[in-house]
Structure formats: C-alpha cells, structure tokens
C-alpha cells in the first residue's frame, strides 16, 4: 500500500471506530444476511457496507428487494446463484420504483407485512429512474427507496452521472465534471413524502436508527447513502469509511432527516473543517486533474450550512 507523505500509514480497520462491532454476523442480525458471504464485490465498497447495515436493520422484517441495473445487481451473481439472502426482482434500469409499487400493492391486498425495498444506484435514481421515482413518491407508495450513491455509473466502468461531483474525472468527463451534482435529498423532500434521510456509513448508530425507522414507517420513504467506490473514486479501499467521515466533517455530505418535507433535523453538526475538506479531495485520485478551487468550494459549503442552520 502506498501513501503520500501527508497521510499516516494505516492498517485496514486500525485507527477507525469498529463498524457495528465489526462486519461479522452476530445475534442481533437477520438470520440470513441480506448480502451473503462469498459475494464478489470490490474491497472497500460503500454499497456493500450499506447492505450489511440493512441486514441488521431488517432483522425483524420480511423483505422483498427490487434492484435495477447497477453494481448491486451484478453483486447477485449469475443464475441460479444469488449473493442475496432475500427475494429480489432484478428490474429494468428505470423501473425500480414502479416494480416495487406493484409488489407493495400485492402485499397490501393480501394483508402481508412484507416491506418492499428498492436498492438502486445514483444512475438509476438521479438519472434514468428519476421520473419513475418522482411518480412513486407523489403517489406516496408504501415503498422504501434506498439510493446508494457512488457518484458514478459503476458497473459500466465509471461514467459521469448527474450525481458526479464538480471536478471529478470519469471516463466521460476526462477533464473533470464541469457542473455540480444534484441535491437529491432536497428533490425528494420537495415531494413532501413522510420520510427522507441521508445516512453516513461513518455514523453507524445514526444510520441503523434511520434504516429501522424507515423500515417501520409507512408511505414513501427515501434514504440516501454516500457510498465510496474505490474503483471509481481512485481511492484506497481501506479509506472507505474515512472518506465518508471526511465528507461529513468538511460539510460536503449533510447527514439529516426530513419529515413530511417540512421538519428538517440535522443529525450530525459538521465542524466544516478546512483540513477535512482538503483531505477528502486529496484522498481521491479522481479530483487530481481538475485543480479545484477549495476556497471557493468551502465558501459554497459555508453558505449552504448557514442556510441549513438557520
């Protein structure tokens, strides 16, 4: 493992808080993990950690998952195997929220307590599935929609999505993306659905609480997970959690929950750290080319947070 001079030498999981007491299965977990051992996901994949958190949160629930085209459906492996310890429908790219709508209605028609969960990437959420998602939210379908946001079209090899941040190099933005990412949490909150929240993988207790709340709640619920992708972000797999923590400390990632599109709760008050901001960008090779003006970015963040705290 190579490190630049600024970063201290670290071993995986050393110097980090243990994640939900570590990644191992334990008593409180779902009998069958949502993401089974032996899956072929990359090391340091934020999406995989999110699935493990879901596994713990859903311990008491019967769940059905709808996964559109994204890394998470490649995760399943090929027929007849499945890396998922849950029933899954592999939906067409833009259809997750609509297929889930049908399943949720069938559960209701038959008096079943099954929770229907969409597990989708940013491409299927911010881009191609946006209309479907918006419509399901408007109808207030009884669906839990979870977007794991790796800010890139991951399983097609790393192209820009409308979630890719300013300055990030992708295979279709060779000089770095020249516009900012969408505010998906704001967009979903504008639908005034019962529950919208953002989850930090570096704050597992908060994340777990939100997943459990969202699983118990009725109506349309939207969760956003910032999910580092070492392959696309050109970062070290061991830095996955650290990157999320830096995103929170620097104010890049807002950890909040919004009830009925009205009541906003900031769950983690960011220190808006300048050094965390520098480090967040320095740890990711994808920002190297763009020569970002961190001062300007920080000013934008300060303004955004002033409004959030107001």
């Amino acid at each position: 493992m190579e490190h630049d001079e600024k970063s201290p030498v670290r071993l995986p999981m050393c110097g980090h808080e243990p994640m939900l007491d570590g990644m191992a299965q334990r008593d409180g977990d779902r009998g069958e993990p949502v993401l089974r051992a032996g899956n072929t996901n990359c090391g340091g994949c934020g999406m995989s950690i999110g699935l493990n958190m879901l596994s713990r949160a859903a311990a008491e629930h019967s769940i059905q998952m709808v996964i559109p085209a994204c890394c998470a459906i490649v995760t399943a492996g090929s027929f007849p195997y499945s890396a998922y310890g849950a029933p899954v429908v592999a939906a067409t790219f833009a259809s997750a929220a609509a297929v889930a709508t049908g399943l949720a209605h069938v559960a209701r028609l038959n008096g079943e307590r099954t929770r229907v969960i969409c597990w989708a990437g940013d491409g299927g959420t911010y881009d191609i599935g946006m209309a479907t998602l918006s419509a399901a939210a408007e109808r207030n379908e009884d669906v839990l929609y979870i977007c794991y946001d790796n800010e890139i079209y991951g399983n097609t090899g790393g192209q820009r999505s409308s979630s890719t941040p300013l300055g990030a190099v992708t295979s279709t933005t060779p000089l770095g993306k020249d516009v900012e990412k969408k505010d998906i949490v704001g967009i979903m909150a504008a639908h005034r659905v019962p529950y919208v929240a953002s989850l930090s993988l570096a704050h597992p207790e908060d994340a777990l609480r939100k997943l459990q709340y969202a699983l118990d709640a009725r109506g349309f619920r939207f969760l956003h997970i910032l999910a580092p992708c070492p392959t696309g972000w050109k970062s070290e797999p061991a830095d996955c959690i650290e990157l999320v923590r830096l995103a929170v400390r620097s104010g890049v990632y807002v950890v909040c929950e919004i009830f009925d599109g009205e009541r906003v709760v900031l769950n983690v008050d960011s220190e808006l750290s300048e050094s965390a901001l520098e480090r967040y960008f320095a740890l990711q090779g994808r920002f190297r080319k763009a020569k970002l003006n961190l001062g300007a970015i920080r000013q934008t963040l300060l303004k955004r947070w002033a409004a959030l705290r107001a």
Partner: peptide, 20 residues
Amino acid sequence: VRVESEHSAMAVCMGFSVGG
C-alpha cells in the same frame, strides 16, 4: 395505479404479476 408513463405502467404490472 395511475402512473407517469407507459414504461412504468408495464413495470407496475410486472410488480403486481411477479407478486402473484
């Protein structure tokens, strides 16, 4: 379910149908 497009109309039908 009154959806927002034909693409979703069929997707909702698929959800109903795959649910039995």
